[in-house]
Design a binder for these strands. Structure first.
Lengths: 177, 177
DNA sequence: GCCATTTAATTCGCTGACGAACTATTCGTC
DNA sequence: GACGAATAGTTCGTCAGCGAATTAAATGGC
């Protein structure tokens, strides 16, 4: 087997492989499934990469991480561009206090607007402004590029397979509630 | 097709599927590859779940998230139980200042010890204590259970396939440096 | 119809992390 | 072998997020 042609065929080790090997050498006594560990570690590393590239993209359009994340969740829900603070906080997985802080920042920047509800005056409706929608759109396009680059390491068939396998796991996560 | 038997065969939609469908309905004008988006979103959701369950596990052994993460990286490197603050900070992807803060907390708790290097007196060696190793071991066992549960939604063949597909992507990430 | 309970959002004090400035030590070169 | 640049770690001021307490409004008994 010639050495220069193996490129794609063999696929050298990644960080996770080295991690698992290291672990097995040093920590034999800790119970440990290497295939599970390798998968979880890879997911973690990919996520870390996505976070990092997202942040680069955001810096380019002049948006902080938490601002983008909030705008994004606001757009992506079933009532795009509208939500109550508490519902949005639940989506984002942050506390109510944190939500108030984010909304303060976003409102000051002009990306969203708080609007008092008329029928229930405890409630507040968050509304994305035009400027907010615009900057979100620019951010998401940049972000998409980085994701495309990584995921297109796989061909369409492989992507479909991966998506299916991941779905099996997310379903477990979502049903175990 | 009887309704109770379809269980595994059909595999209902997960959050990512609904997300993609919603997106296509509402935001046709935003350029968008659904297979990429679904994969990235699922990875994000899995990661989120792992983080949440890890935190539950840590609460049980009485360790904070950042404490565990630091101990873990300290154990998992090629010199297990030993590192310099800056090397560890790089592994963890946090700042030097943040590292100092974490080490202060860990040292006060008795999980690690700072040890001044003799040959280069700028350097500090971080050393895991016995107590630190012990609590890390307990934490990692609990954490492993939650990961096992999710990943074992797949059979061994599927796990191998998944690991391979993920590796293709992590390699892109790691090489693009 | 009034009072206790629940619900929505905000304020407050604290904490972990960051970037920038700082201190101490070593390296490099002249 | 001395002085400027580089390197390791810490200190300092700031910020986002959290949990707990707070304010305000709606709901549910009786």
């Amino acid at each position: 087997m010639p050495d220069e042609v193996r490129q794609d065929a063999v696929d050298e080790d990644d960080w996770a492989d080295r991690h698992v090997a290291r672990w097995r050498d040093h920590w034999v006594d800790v119970p440990f499934e290497d295939d599970v560990e390798a998968i979880v570690v890879r997911i973690g590393r990919l996520m870390r990469h996505f976070r990092a590239t997202t942040q680069l993209a955001l810096a380019e359009v002049g948006l902080q991480d938490f601002e983008y994340e909030t705008l994004h969740h606001l757009m992506v829900r079933d009532t795009p561009g509208h939500a109550s603070p508490s519902a949005l906080a639940a989506d984002l997985g942050i506390s109510g206090a944190g939500m108030t802080g984010r909304l303060d920042a976003l409102e000051k920047a002009g990306w969203i607007q708080r609007r008092a509800s008329v029928d229930d005056r405890r409630r507040v409706d968050i509304e994305l402004t035009k400027a907010g929608a615009e900057i979100w759109r620019r951010a998401i396009q940049l972000r998409g590029k980085a994701e495309h680059e990584v995921v297109h390491a796989l061909d369409p068939d492989e992507r479909a397979t991966l998506a299916g396998l991941l779905r099996k796991m997310t379903l477990v996560v979502e049903q175990g509630s």
